[in-house]
């Protein structure tokens, strides 16, 4: 399992994304945009042209951060991933319509998303859940925030410039899923332990 993390600076080509495989650790640099339930619903309800440029080639990050005001701007206090599966109904469409490079979250996603990743050459990256402070430190700059008034702090779109943001590829563009593999192995052990 030991592998050197691969440094990836966005924007990255579809070719590079398609070359990533599950289990690969990455240090990601570039733009990520946070979006949770309200954000995904918003992006799918209607095509939002003003989000097209922002999202194209960027990663959507499933995260509801803790932010504090600092002068005119904002500072990220804690920003770990939140459970991705809640966005399963919307994710495939967000990938297809906005041509994002992929998704960062936790827990993995379902078959519909997996198909969209394959179709559009995108990947699902898993961050360490609960590592709120550590991940917040990898945010170099808060570029802007959208829909803050409407959605509130955790649900707003925070546009973040990250540097060496540590993640693991757990769903790749070839249909691979580390979640599926670990689940299958665990299921075999469960049956063995319980004599089922």
């Amino acid at each position: 399992m030991a592998n050197e993390p691969l440094r990836l600076r966005m924007p990255v080509s579809e070719e590079v994304l398609r070359g990533l495989t599950i289990g690969q650790e990455l240090l990601l640099s570039g733009t990520v945009v946070t979006a949770r339930d309200m954000g995904h619903k918003f992006l799918v309800e209607a095509f939002r042209p003003d989000f097209a440029d922002l999202l194209q080639g960027a990663f959507v990050y499933h995260c509801g951060p803790i932010m504090v005001r600092e002068g005119e701007g904002w500072r990220v206090v804690s920003a770990g991933p939140t459970t991705s599966n809640r966005e399963e109904p919307y994710q495939a469409e967000v990938i297809a319509r906005y041509r994002i490079a992929g998704v960062i979250g936790k827990g993995g996603m379902g078959e519909k998303t997996s198909r969209a990743l394959q179709q559009h050459g995108a990947v699902y990256l898993h961050a360490v859940g609960g590592a709120g402070t550590l991940l917040a430190r990898r945010v170099r700059r808060v570029r802007e925030v959208r829909m803050l008034q409407e959605f509130g702090v955790p649900e707003a779109f925070w546009v973040l410039e990250v540097e060496d943001f540590p993640v693991v590829v757990t769903m790749d563009a070839r249909g691979g899923s580390l979640h599926r593999e670990v689940l299958a192995a665990s299921e075999a052990r469960r049956k063995e332990l319980l004599g089922l």
Binding site: G64, G130, G132
Partner: peptide, 23 residues
């Protein structure tokens, strides 16, 4: 690496007085 990130996160949170996890 994952456990190491958790442990380092715990140390950083204690020093900075920031929540260990945003949830």
């Amino acid at each position: 690496n994952v456990l190491d990130a958790m442990i380092r996160n715990v140390e950083m949170s204690r020093e900075a007085g920031t929540p260990i996890c945003q949830d």
